[in-house]
C-alpha cells in the first residue's frame, strides 16, 4: 500500500557514523529483505524509517512525504500507517497480551471493543498463540513475546511494515509460520514490507529483493537470485555461510 524511498541517509552518534548515506527504494506491496552482520546498522536504519530517530542527513519519503523534517505530532499521523516489529518485542509489560495486541485500535478508537477482541483472537491464532489473551508479557518466552509484538504491529493494519529480525530465536517450525504470515499479509492487504534478517533460507523464501548492508552502507541490492550470483566477497560470505 505504501511506497518508501530512502535517499542518502546518514546517522551519527557522537561523531561516529552508524549509517553512511543509505539509499533504498521499496515499491508498493514489495518485500525487501535487509541483511547484514551484527552491528552493521540494520536496527538503526529501521528506526530512522519509523521516525523514532532523526537522520543527520538525507531524506526518507513514505507515500511521497519526507518524514525527516517532521515534528513529533506530524510523525504521529504518518506512523498510523507504519508498523514496527521490534527486535526485542518491546511489549508493554504492565498490560496483558490482549491489551498489548489491541493497543492501537483501542487507543485510537478505530474499532469497537468487541471487534478488537475478535481481531486480537484471530491475530494470536495467526502467530500460533491462540488462547493466550490473559497472559502477561513476563509469563512468555522470548519467542512468544516476539510473536505478540508481531501481532500488535499487524493489529493497526499499517501500509508499511518494518520487521526487525522477526524469526531470530524462533524454532524452525514457528519461523516458517512467521515467514508465511509475512507473505500472506502482503498478499492479502498489499502491504509494503522491509524485513531485517540474518536468516538466509528465510530471506530467499520470502523476499522479492534483497539489500546487503555492511558497516552502515548498502553494498548491493538485487533479487535473491542475483545476490546468490554476487561476486562481492562480503555478500558471498553471508550467502554461503
Amino acid at each position: 500500500m505504501s511506497e518508501l524511498h530512502v535517499t542518502g541517509v546518514s546517522y551519527a552518534v557522537s561523531d561516529r557514523l552508524i549509517l553512511k548515506g543509505v539509499d533504498l527504494e521499496v515499491r508498493q506491496g514489495e518485500i525487501l529483505a535487509v541483511m547484514g552482520m551484527s552491528g552493521s546498522g540494520k536496527t538503526t536504519l529501521l528506526k530512522c524509517i519509523a521516525g523514532l530517530i532523526k537522520p543527520s542527513r538525507g531524506s526518507i519519503t513514505v507515500d511521497g512525504e519526507d518524514i525527516v523534517p517532521m515534528s513529533e505530532a506530524q510523525l504521529d499521523r504518518v506512523r498510523l500507517r507504519i508498523g514496527l516489529v521490534f527486535q526485542y518485542a518491546a511489549l508493554f509489560d504492565s498490560l496483558t497480551v490482549q491489551e498489548n495486541v489491541g493497543f492501537g485500535p483501542l487507543q485510537h478508537r478505530t474499532k469497537t471493543p468487541e471487534a478488537v477482541a475478535e481481531l486480537v483472537g484471530s491475530l494470536l491464532a495467526d502467530v500460533g498463540m491462540p488462547g493466550t489473551e490473559r497472559m502477561l508479557p513476563a509469563e512468555l518466552s522470548g519467542g512468544m513475546r516476539k510473536r505478540v509484538g508481531l501481532a500488535r504491529a499487524l493489529a493497526n493494519e499499517p501500509g508499511l511494515l518494518l520487521y526487525d529480525e522477526p524469526t531470530s530465536g524462533l524454532d524452525p517450525v514457528i519461523a516458517r509460520t512467521i515467514d508465511d504470515l509475512i507473505v500472506e499479509t502482503r498478499d492479502r492487504r498489499g502491504v509494503t514490507s522491509v524485513v531485517v534478517s540474518h536468516d538466509i533460507p528465510s530471506i530467499f523464501r520470502i523476499a522479492d529483493r534483497v539489500a546487503m548492508i555492511d558497516n552502515g552502507a548498502i553494498i548491493e541490492t538485487g533479487t535473491p537470485a542475483e545476490l546468490r550470483r554476487s561476486s562481492d566477497s562480503r555478500v558471498r560470505a553471508f550467502v554461503d555461510a
Binding site: 528506526k47 519509523a50 523514532l52 513529533e72 510523525l75 504521529d76 499521523r77 506512523r79 498510523l80 507504519i82 508498523g83 514496527l84 521490534f86 526485542y88 518491546a90 511489549l91 508493554f92 509489560d93 493497543f103 492501537g104 487507543q107 485510537h108 500488535r152 504491529a153 493497526n156
Partner: peptide
C-alpha cells in the same frame, strides 16, 4: 523500548 513502542502506536 516501550516508549518507542508507544510512539510507534502514535
Amino acid at each position: 523500548e516501550q516508549i518507542d513502542a508507544l510512539r510507534m502506536m502514535s
